[in-house]
Structure formats: C-alpha cells, structure tokens
Design a protein around this nucleic acid. Structure first.
Length: 496
RNA sequence: GGCGGGUUGGCGGAGAGGUUACGCAGCGGAUUGCAAAUCCGUGAAGACCGGUUCGAUUCCGGUACCCGCCUCCA
C-alpha cells in the first residue's frame, strides 16, 4: 500500500500517515461561516483537502473514508446581517431571517464548490443543529474543572490545560505579555475564552443551564467532531490562520472533555491566498469571490488547476497569467483525452507525488510527462485523481458540434449558449444553431476562396470572423473554430 | 515585542547532498499559401555571508528582505 506522508503542524515535521482504523479513515476540515459568498481564499482549503479526500479514498477505498466539514451558522456577523434586514422593515422573526440567510449562503457555497470540482464531504453538520451536544460538552468541562460560569458567560480555564499553546508554539505567558488579549473583568485569566455567551432578546439564543444564550465559536468543532468522528480521529485540517486561536482552543476543549481520546493525530494547515502580496481577507476587503471569477468566465476547473499549481503549504497569488496557462493546458489535455476511456488506475508517479505531502504541483508535472508520452488513458485516470479532466467539469470547453466544415468545437468561455440558465447578466445569450450555421456558411465561402487560391479573400473572411469573436484555425482535418470571450453574435450575422 | 513560514532561471514552480525537473514565454529548425497547431533542438537559477562535506541550490548557523499569526478570518 502506498505510504502517505503529511506535514503535521502539531510536530512541524513530515510524518508517515498511519490511520487509527484503515477501514474508517476520518478527516475533519473547518468549514465556512455562512454569512456571505466564499471568496477565493476560502476555496483553497476546499480544493486542497478535496485532493486529500480523493487520495485517501484511492488508497483506503471510497467507502473507508469519512470526511466531515462543518457549517458555522451561528455567528455575530450572521446576526448583524439579519438584524439589518429587520431594521430595514422585514416583519419576520429574527430566527427566520437568519435561517433564510444561512440557507441561501449554504446554497451558494455548494454551487461554488461544486463548480470547483470538490466532492461533497460525507457529512456537513450545521452548528445550530448540534447545540445540545455543545451544551453537554460545556457542562462536562465545568464538571471537570476546566470551565467556569461568570457573568452569564461560560469560560474555558486555559490554565487548567497544561499543553495549551502546543499546537501554535506559544505559551500563555508570552501571549499575555503581548497584551493583545481582550480584557474582560469576569475572566479569571485574560487568555480564557468563551464557551457560551448570553443572548439578549434581539439575538438568537438557546435555553441552557446558564440561561438563554449561544455558543462561542470554537466549541462547535469540538462537539461535532466528537459526535461524528469520535474522541480520536486521524486528520484535522484548515487554514493556517485558524491555527491560533481556533484550533488551539478546540484541542484544549476536546482533550479536557475527552481525556481518553487523542483528538486529531495529524493537523494540516494550508497557507493563505495573497492579493498584491497581502493575505486575502474580508477584514482587509481585498477579496473577490469564487463566483466573481466564474462569472468572468473562468471555468471552475481552471480555478482548481491554479490552486493545485502551488503546494498548499506555501502562500499563493492568484494571477490572470496563471489562469490563462492553466486554461491552455487543460484545453490541450481535454482535447487529448476526448472520448478516451480512463485507465483503471492512476499513474503510480502521480499517486506517489500526492502521497508525498500532497505535492499537487509535482503531480501536475507527472501529468505533463504522461501527456508527452502519449499515455492518454493514464493521463485521464491520473488527472481524475486530482479532480481534473472529470466529466463533471467538462462543460466549459470543447463541446463538439457536428456538421459543417471540418471538426467544430464550441468553447463556452464566458458565453452561454441557448437560453441562459445561469442568472448572471454578463453571460451572452444566443442561438447556438443559428451561430453554427452562419459560421459554417462563412467558412464554406472561405474554403472556396482558398481552393481558388484567392488567399486575400480567404484571409478577409477569417479577419471578419475574428472581429466578431470567432477564432478560426486550420488543422489537418479542416478548419476549427471557437468562440472567444468577446464573441458578438450581431457582428457575426453582419458578415457577408 | 513573542511565535511561525518564505526567498530557485524572463514568469510560474518542484524534487533530489553528486546525474535534464516540469510548464509557459524566448531563441533556432521542420511543417504551413499565411496564421494557429504540432514536432525536433536550445540558452537561462538557486537572496547574502559563513560552516559541515571529496562535493550543497539541497544539511547547519548568521544577515537582509518579504509574509502570516498573536483581534473576526480558509
């Protein structure tokens, strides 16, 4: 069996991955807070750990991997959005407004992550559906002396957990010295963090032994991972910015509540996405969403390929140049593997690259090797392991069109054929059949001109098509056309 | 201030203590009415200073610069 090696943030070393139970390999990834569209940075861990999920399935069997990714649907930003809507005159109860907002956001999230080719996790628990488990865990922590009630809050007693800070490599004393901790008079220690906080009448809340309130952010992951994966599981992953305090606090809660378990054996953290050298984040406002890129015409598969072009442990810039390169490569590979049956197994070198701490860039290098060697079945099977060249993501390019001159290809870069089903104004709508006919007509005229050796006229036709956004290339089998992002149906019709 | 990460050829970006990374772009050639595509060939690197070593871009130490976390954040 292939040996997987992963960089374990807990030990800061690359370690051989040994699952607790090979018949049920368990992975937990911190999911989104559902108050808004996912930005490009949010998509990175989804794609990176989707590849991990696929690799684990490949090696241990598809039915032997459990992947949990949560939805945080209780959060002050969500509350604020709902309150703003209520203030704007919406008569419905706050709970309904919140539920509507989070349902809507989850729908967006699924649509956007599906577009990136990410498989749905085995389970996607919503925090609001596990409040009972959180309350039980908090009670347990109080009973064990790791938490205390104060001023309507329940706080975790950081000093009660000896290894607090081990994951992120810091000590409680150092952090207090840094003096950037929230000072609340009811805290025993400035580093203590909230497990439960009171809700007043105009905030969502649940009844609890400490009155009506809502959970702190960190407890949900501890409670849900325990319920769904147990006190010990294999891998816990997320963005590096979650390492502290979120993951540190999760460890403290889980280890203290379930000292019999080890919580996560391996911790994996992806580095950040950068814009102009700075971390992409909502607080800085320098972000764009996955949907923005999709609407601009970048296929999800291209975005996915760009993500996988950089090792997850390194910061990554999104640039149009990278996207263009990824698009061109995928286009080539899609052509090579069109109508090709994928091999039974991915190429060993590709599996080996991924097994080496998810070296996705190295794996892509191997795909280039397979393409150059003409092993198209191996290329397809191997790319599939990376979630590339899959049928699910095939929509965007090289849709074969029958009839006319030579082989026609329709490319959907930023263009919707037929009646628009995607609700965005940027997509162009036209009648594909009519367009095909017109192009075929012009190409026929052009080929007649070429047959008559009237190259000036032939080039005029090509120039006019190009001006209308139709690129024409002569290939051995005949002329091939594709629609460019600036395709203009009106200009095409005007060609004589 | 504390903690962590990074610095590779024109660009992107890997592996490996000694042997061509790879892709894109460039250059030369084949092919083509032209363009595109394709094929063949090809130049170019390891922030800086030390150390270990027969040999380091790869290991160790230091310097510089960049980035992240310490506050909600993937």
């Amino acid at each position: 069996m292939t040996t997987i090696r992963l960089t374990n943030t807990k030990t800061r070393k690359k370690e051989v991955f040994t699952p607790i139970d090979p018949a049920n390999v368990r992975l937990y990834v911190c999911g989104p807070t559902v108050y808004d569209r996912a930005h490009l940075g949010n998509g990175r861990p989804v794609v990176v750990f989707d590849v991990l999920f696929r690799l684990l399935r490949q090696i241990y069997g598809a039915d032997h991997v459990t992947y949990v990714r949560n939805f945080t649907d209780v959060d002050d930003k969500i509350n604020a959005a709902a309150q703003a809507r209520k203030a704007a005159g919406d008569p419905r109860p706050l709970e309904d407004l919140i539920r509507e907002r989070t349902d809507e956001t989850i729908g967006w999230y699924h649509a956007d992550m599906d577009a990136l080719g990410a498989l749905r996790p085995t389970a996607e628990p919503r925090a609001t559906e596990w409040i009972g488990a959180m309350i039980a865990m908090i009670e347990d922590l109080i009973a064990k002396g790791h938490a205390y009630e104060a001023a309507g809050h329940v706080l975790f007693r950081v000093r009660s957990y000896r290894d607090y800070g081990a994951l992120s490599g810091r000590s409680v004393d150092d952090m207090i010295a840094g003096a950037r901790v929230e000072v609340a008079p009811f805290k025993e220690d400035p580093m203590d963090f909230v497990l439960w906080k009171p809700s007043d009448a105009d905030l969502p809340g649940w009844e609890s032994p400490w009155g009506r309130g809502r959970p702190g952010w960190h407890i949900e992951c501890s409670a849900m991972s325990h319920e769904l994966l147990g006190a010990s599981f294999d891998i816990h992953a997320g963005g590096i910015d979650l390492q502290f305090p979120h993951h540190e606090n999760e460890i403290a809660q889980s280890r203290c509540a379930h000292p019999e378990g080890g919580f996560a054996n391996y911790w994996m953290h992806n580095e950040m996405l950068l814009v102009d050298g700075k971390k992409m984040s909502k607080s800085l406002g320098n972000f764009f969403t996955v949907r923005d890129l999709l609407d601009q015409g970048w296929p999800g598969e291209v975005i996915r390929m760009v993500y996988l072009g950089t090792h997850y442990g390194k910061p990554m810039d999104w640039t149009e140049e990278k996207a263009e390169q990824a698009r061109d490569t995928l286009r080539k590979w899609r052509q090579l593997t069109e109508n090709v049956e994928a091999a039974n197994m991915p190429d060993p070198a590709v599996v080996a690259a991924l097994a080496n701490d998810l070296n996705t860039h190295g794996a892509i290098g191997q795909l280039h090797r397979l393409a150059a060697a003409g092993d198209v079945a191996g290329l397809k099977a191997s790319a599939n392991l990376l979630g590339l060249l899959t049928d699910d993501l095939a929509d965007w390019t090289w849709r074969p069109v029958s009839g006319g001159v030579g082989t026609h290809h329709f490319e959907a870069m930023g263009i919707a054929a037929g009646p628009a089903t995607v609700g965005t104004s940027q997509l162009k709508v036209f009648d594909l059949e009519q367009v095909e006919q017109k192009i075929a007509q012009v190409l026929t005229a052009r080929s007649e001109a070429r047959a008559a050796r009237d190259y000036q006229l032939a080039d005029q036709y090509r120039g006019k098509l190009l001006a209308a956004g139709v690129s024409v290339k002569d290939q051995p089998g005949g002329a091939v056309w594709e629609l460019m992002p600036d395709f203009d149906p009106a200009k095409l019709e005007a060609i004589k």
